[in-house]
């Protein structure tokens, strides 16, 4: 059983809401989801989840990933209900071959694409009215062993850019490149199964622009728009289809 939630009706009140509009590049709406511990929000979020999602919650081993899942999935449900004008009870998800959630209303696919990402206390939900979308967020915090990863995940121009940088600028650029690539890989639905070293972020972004167009016929026939949507607290990127490749889902 899930709580009734027709559009805005039945949704947690403004004072309790843990998601807010973050940015809206092109046809995409991105919402920020606060994932800090908050018993009232977590209780409200729980009521929005369906039986399958609650079962999934029981598999999490520690409170932090469970909280991230509950708060971000409930926020996804809330924004989808508003965008689709549907009742929360009608909303379910099917999963693509590699696990990307696809929203269904009354068991049918809808003309809206979504993706979510969470890291530490930040979640992002992206909705696209035009085509496939992928989003990735990484909390800005010190991380171990990233230097040794450069050869594995970046192409030659990306490596050359990183080789010129140090300290905070190196880490910021690493995370900008990683989130851009993961946003693309999540838009394609492949996730980590894409070899990140075989494609590079658009050259205009390597030159410092916040957005660029990505084309790589070996991977996808569509043209993708990539946007850096990071801020002081988080590194993040969103990737969305500029023109639709006929009905392809991995």
């Amino acid at each position: 059983m899930t709580a009734g939630l027709q559009g805005d009706r039945g949704m947690p009140g403004d004072d309790l809401r843990w998601w807010r509009p973050y940015c809206s590049p092109g046809p995409v709406e991105v919402f920020h989801v606060a994932l800090v511990p908050h018993s009232g929000r977590e209780a409200a979020a729980w009521t929005l989840l369906d039986t399958e999602e609650r079962r999934r919650c029981r598999r999490f081993l520690y409170p932090a990933p469970r909280r991230q899942f509950v708060l971000s999935r409930a926020a996804l449900r809330a924004v989808l209900c508003v965008a689709l004008g549907c009742d929360n009870g009608e909303l379910t998800f099917e999963f693509s071959r590699y696990g990307k959630p696809i929203p269904l209303v009354g068991g049918d696919r809808v003309a809206l694409h979504c993706n979510i990402s969470h890291s530490g206390s930040h979640g992002l939900v992206a909705l696209s009215h035009r085509g496939r979308v992928g989003v990735d967020v990484e909390e800005r915090r010190p991380r171990k062993n990233l230097e040794d990863l450069v050869e594995t995940v970046f192409g030659p121009e990306e490596r050359a850019l990183l080789a010129r940088l140090q300290g905070k600028r190196w880490l910021d650029t690493f995370l900008a490149l990683w989130t851009a690539k993961e946003a693309l890989a999540k838009a394609w639905g492949m996730g980590l199964r894409t070899d990140f070293s075989t494609f590079q972020v658009p050259s205009e972004m390597l030159r410092g622009e916040r957005t660029g167009l990505f084309r790589c016929p070996r991977i996808s026939n569509a043209t993708w728009r990539l946007e850096d949507i990071g801020c002081d607290d988080l590194a993040a990127a969103v990737a969305y289809e500029e023109d639709r490749e006929a009905g392809r889902e991995f």
């Binding site: 990933p65 062993n145 990863l149 996730g191 980590l192």
Partner: peptide, 14 residues
């Protein structure tokens, strides 16, 4: 299910 992100895991596996 343990909350390990893909970035942390790829760095660890490497």
């Amino acid at each position: 299910d343990s909350g390990v992100s893909s970035l942390d895991f790829v760095a660890f596996a490497k």
